[in-house]
Nucleic acid binder design. Structure first.
Lengths: 195, 195
DNA sequence: GAGTGATATGAACGCGCGTTCAGTTCAAGG
DNA sequence: CCTTGAACTGAACGCGCGTTCATATCACTC
């Protein structure tokens, strides 16, 4: 038997990515087999290869699309006014976006070493673009004399690490509401750069 | 043939752990085979089982010993005086210790999901103890009125994430010297909590 | 210098891996 | 209603995996 009733390529493709994302996030790329992904989708392993050339491309596509959506969302976010307000808005955006997509975030920065060199370079380029957006804010703040940081690159990396870390401990329905968490992180970020 | 001249258990044991640590850090636990580890040591795969009951225990032992050494080193570190000085000393210690052992650190927090439940619980207990040490400093600072943080637990996680992030970008011989990096991180940590 | 225990080999075990492919089923267009 | 092609199956491929074990070698003790 083959081709069960109701199957469609437009449905199976996204479902494969969703299942792969969930499994990669939970167990890690190397520990997840194509057969496990297929089982999660409700399909045989061979069928996956109608939608991805190989396992590596499946991972890369997840990471690439995540980072491109992140950059697009940042571009769509209003970052108005003086550097301090822009930094606060960036911090809130970053925390919110990452809390909304824990799986994507987790995969995108835990599985870097499982990318082949070419794919790694492409992903790093996107990550760098995002980091640069933050660094621009910091540079503007330093130039305006409202931030005091000895090194904007170091401060950029420190802030991103701090903000991204929220995904490691936050759990829905915990002690703190999302809005509180966003606000607290934003304030810590501002203070950290001396605003 | 077997037992080549000059072999000793006291040498092979540590060498296995060193090779495993290096390979796990570079490629990830799930992507490293026992045969690769054995090859790095210069031994056949079977010989590894004279030193570890299985692959899982090898990983756990690396993580456990790392965290216990971290806690011991923290306990041996003088954290004198008022909260602000203690926080600065903690931040410098954390950055220094992590920069000195990039492989241990990387393995200890990238491979958590590859621990079985029992081992995971043990490692989490140790991590928690370390986090608590920082939170105690923050609580003391809040009580003394010198730190302003809405939630000490959140601030603890944010600071540790920020400080640990140094391992993700710092490279020996880069733009900044180690001492500078330590100092900058310590100052950012202080400012972040409003000291 | 014989005997013993620690240290290692190398072959083997069953198993699951990523990937391929010939064949099968079904939805839709003319 | 027939044809066509997209969607999928199920079996197979060679390979490397973690682990075990009978066997071999060597360092050391008495």
């Amino acid at each position: 038997m083959a081709r069960r009733t109701g199957s469609h390529g437009e449905i199976t493709g996204p479902r494969i990515r969703a299942v792969a994302r969930a499994l990669f996030a939970r167990d890690g790329f190397a520990a997840v087999s194509m057969r496990q992904i297929a089982a999660g989708v409700g399909v045989q392993a061979g069928a996956l290869y109608l939608y991805t050339p190989d396992k590596q491309s499946l991972l890369f596509e997840l990471m690439r699309s995540h980072l491109e959506e992140l950059l697009a969302a940042l571009a769509a976010e209003p970052l108005p006014g003086p550097p301090a307000e822009r930094l606060a808005a960036f911090a809130r955006f970053h925390v919110r976006y990452h809390l909304d997509r824990p799986e994507e975030v987790f995969v995108a920065y835990m599985e870097l070493r499982n990318l082949n060199p070419e794919n790694f370079a492409a992903v790093e380029r996107l990550r760098h673009a995002y980091e640069d957006a933050l660094e621009e804010i910091l540079k503007a703040g330093v130039a305006a004399g409202v931030f005091r940081v000895p090194d904007t690159r170091l401060a950029t990396m420190a802030l991103i690490a701090m903000l991204t870390g929220v995904t490691q401990w936050y759990h829905e329905g915990g002690r703190l509401a999302r809005a509180e968490v966003e606000a607290i992180y934003a304030e810590m970020a501002l203070k950290a750069v001396g605003a």
